[in-house]
Design a protein around this nucleic acid. Structure first.
Lengths: 338, 338
DNA sequence: TTGAAAGCGCTAACAC
DNA sequence: GTGTTAGCGCTTTCAA
């Protein structure tokens, strides 16, 4: 079992100095054709690969990006990561992925870990808890240090940062317009609590479209789902009222599919009795029966665009590029539920 | 904007030597109470964190694990990764995640990258292409070098390795038994081509159960789906025959949900006219209508168990632990489709 | 054309 | 109780 070779062993094995080996391996013209090919042949035969840590330490460049997302078992985030990975690997960058589980403490821990030499830059979707507690010191510190960082989807408010977000408000607007155009009038919304900005924005756009069409929403049709309690029963409440909505906008795929299930269980025909539109980039919407009309989120695009901004920052580290905000536009994908 | 501090800057700032700082930060009793607290206070104030690369190089230990999976936008793999992450982070380990996209070349590239100092150990699900071409040299090299590596789900055959697999054959067997017990007799299978061992094993178990019950499968009911061609039309063929099966076993969730869709489109009642059972750990099965009965794969458990074996190897690096194979048992989760 | 030396940030054996 | 030194693997002046 051949142990791993490094420059030193190659050097002593071949009777040359480490610096000669290093140069030869980089095809330096300082080194004679003969020694060069000898060294390269040896290196190839023993599968020499430079030590990543040593390279990173020496060059102050790790060729790795850090990614912090709340979770990975989630179609949107896995698509985001997939987009990140694609652009990163095209540029010879590797990924260190950490999960915050939506906890502030984990997020801080991950940030601390990743920003101490491990990676050249960071892609972050902020944890819900940080958003709730408005605690962004750990990010502010990095920004003050000019550490390359790009935020994705859920971002800290009021900071000068690079970010890639969705036009959540426009998405909500489009969802409402779609329902209205299809003739639905008594609309309901299943959304998230206040602190989750994406939910709030989607609702804002949704309400704006209603207003424009001279419609309003009954307070009882405006359900703010608290994720710490059973989701099903909260959504069930929407259906247990005397008067029912004829169209539902759910700010995520999960709420939409649960609403669909409950509606069908109660004997409602979708989309005849009630229409449902979700907000997602997920698989589920394509497999339900009927399939769900959704506002597409384009997670993959978000990931790859964010990575491009980040790499650009890394490549031009000392130039003062103004902060960018990329807004990914959404579109309604019409399926059977509306 | 305060630049990042390191041991050297702290030392010169405080008029002591780097080694004093290093020791003080590790609460060494060699250092006087006074200097110690002075140094620690300074470090805390400036958010000092040791450089990961330098630590790794110095200690020959990176506190990172490499993960290579074919893709991440896949419920099974994202659950596997989630399980890995959980056990890893409990042990203060971080993850470097690479995607092979089921390509041999990418897999080799990832392996080369990760095993050069970046990580202390590796968790791998083998790419389909490597399996097809029976090319495992890159793994054999690592194994010869005693590099800690654990394989997951799809493993290279005939090698002395640590692995965590599913009892695919037993899973197929259970699926068949379930259908038979429910009274279905004309069974069909939607499976993968030969080289994907998990599909083959599931089919083997399935056929074994049929045999035990004195049943056989019509060749026309045995569909080997080629993923390089449109999946829908291949499955459609099963339904366009004169005689139809009354029960279908799909070796993954995707095939199962497509089969369900097609069956319903053709006016078949599930589970009355035809039953469908899938093989998965996914979300989709819970959201289809009717929900799909499945053989549960327990990806999360696989990930965390594999990580435990790996960490154990890493902690006891020079001891000769015999290779382990952990078989995760499957179970039928009965839902509405059977 | 080749090699010696210094240093990336850290630690540990060994002085003092 | 504190400091010096060497070295993890690599690259890059600078000297030979």
């Amino acid at each position: 079992m051949p142990k791993k070779v490094n420059i030193k062993t190659i050097a002593s094995e071949l009777g040359v100095s480490p610096s000669t080996v290093s140069k030869a391996l980089k095809d330096s013209h300082e080194i004679s054709e003969e020694t060069r090919s000898k060294i390269q042949a040896y290196a190839k035969f023993y599968h020499y690969k430079p030590n990543t840590l040593a390279l990173g330490l020496r060059n102050q460049k790790t060729m790795a990006l850090g990614v912090i997302v709340p979770e990975i078992v989630h179609h949107f985030f896995s698509r985001v990561i997939s987009g990140i990975e694609n652009t990163a690997s095209q540029n010879d960058y590797n990924l260190m992925i950490c999960l915050s589980k939506d906890q502030l403490s984990k997020e801080i821990q991950n940030i601390d870990m990743l920003t101490n030499g491990s990676v050249d830059g960071l892609l972050v979707t902020v944890a819900k808890e940080s958003l709730e507690k408005c605690n962004f010191e750990h990010f502010e510190r990095l920004i003050a240090q000019d550490f390359p960082i790009v935020f994705l989807d859920r971002v800290p408010p009021n900071l000068q940062i690079d970010k890639v977000i969705i036009d959540d408000s426009a998405g909500g607007y489009k969802a409402a317009k779609h329902l209205i155009e299809k003739g639905y009038r008594k609309l309901a919304i299943l959304t998230t609590p206040q602190h989750v900005t994406v939910g709030v924005d989607r609702e804002m756009g949704f309400l704006k479209a209603l207003k424009e069409s001279g419609l309003t929403i009954y307070p009882k049709f405006d359900i703010k789902v608290n994720e710490n309690e059973p989701i099903d029963s909260q959504i069930e409440k929407l259906f247990s009222q005397k008067e029912l909505p004829d169209g539902i906008f759910a700010v995520n795929e999960n709420y939409a599919s649960i609403a669909l299930k409950i509606a069908q269980k109660r004997g409602l025909k979708v989309p005849d009795d009630i229409a449902i539109i979700g907000f997602t980039d997920g698989l589920i919407s394509k497999t339900t029966n009927p399939t769900l009309t959704t506002v597409a989120q384009h997670g993959y695009t978000m990931g790859s665009q964010a990575t491009e901004i980040l790499l650009n920052r890394i490549y031009n580290k000392n130039e003062a590029i103004p902060n960018q905000t990329i807004v990914i536009s959404t579109n309604v994908v019409e399926r059977e539920s509306t």
